[in-house]
Amino acid sequence: MSALRPWAGVALLLLPVLIWVLSLAANYDVIADVDVSRASLAPSVDHWLGCDHLGRDVLWRLITASESFVGPSLFACVVALVIGVPAGALSGWLGGLPASLTRFGLTTVASLPRFVLVLLVCAAFGNSVQLIALAAGVAYAPTLAEAIYARIQSFRHRGFVLAGQAHGLRSGRILWLHLLWVNHRRLILRHCVQLFAYFLLLETTLSYIGGLDGAGSFGVAQPDPSWGNMIAFEWREPQANIWATLAPGLATALVLLGATWTGRSLIEEQA
């Protein structure tokens, strides 16, 4: 089991990505799918997970909901990488004043709780998933940068770095290729997996809260589906198809589990 776990984790993580591709390829219209004659249908051959209380196909919405987090969370990862990796790597490599300044800046960002930071950004600049992704990426960057900083600093004077320099490898090449790519890509990947999971949870939470007040003030607003707003939309309905509430919750749990397993396997092999 423990040997299978990393693979199961990766499989669970890849699942939403595959679903995302499927959803982009498919021609499901989230807006026009309402059909109250199908309200709260139980799962059947035509609708594998049944329908929600407006008669929309739960499975299709579950699939389409991947659009609300897969792309944005990848974007969040890119943002975190673009900010966190250079900041951490350069301050670790250079040390001294540049490192102090960069780390001061990052610590300032990190001192705000991430969730609060995201909410602040939403409140100030409006509520869109891309913006939330940007905020999440920025909010996560200090964590990534700090991790990389610590590692680069400890690797900075290892023999092979000196040898590489002696061989005439340019600092940039040693830093980016040998230190970051060859030696720390797992670390970076693990942080990306963590951020992916974090963003999924964030988006789901925000969309859930947004879905509760019926007006979609946070996160993804109906009719666009999100696993969070799907739960919020259904759970108060006394006659709801139980799958319409459970399925998005289970999907979230599975992907998070996948992220945990994958992340753990990346740590184990690192050591």
Binding site: G159, F160, L162, A163, A166, H167, G168, R170, S171, H178
Partner: peptide, 28 residues
């Protein structure tokens, strides 16, 4: 100083440190 040594390191002078294993990138 760093830049001054660029043409020296490698093409002119290579260095084998005391512990040769440590001089190799452990993950490559």
């Amino acid at each position: 100083r760093e830049r001054a040594f660029v043409p020296v390191r490698g093409p002119l002078i290579a260095w084998l440190p005391q512990n040769p294993r440590a001089a190799l990138d452990p993950l490559q």
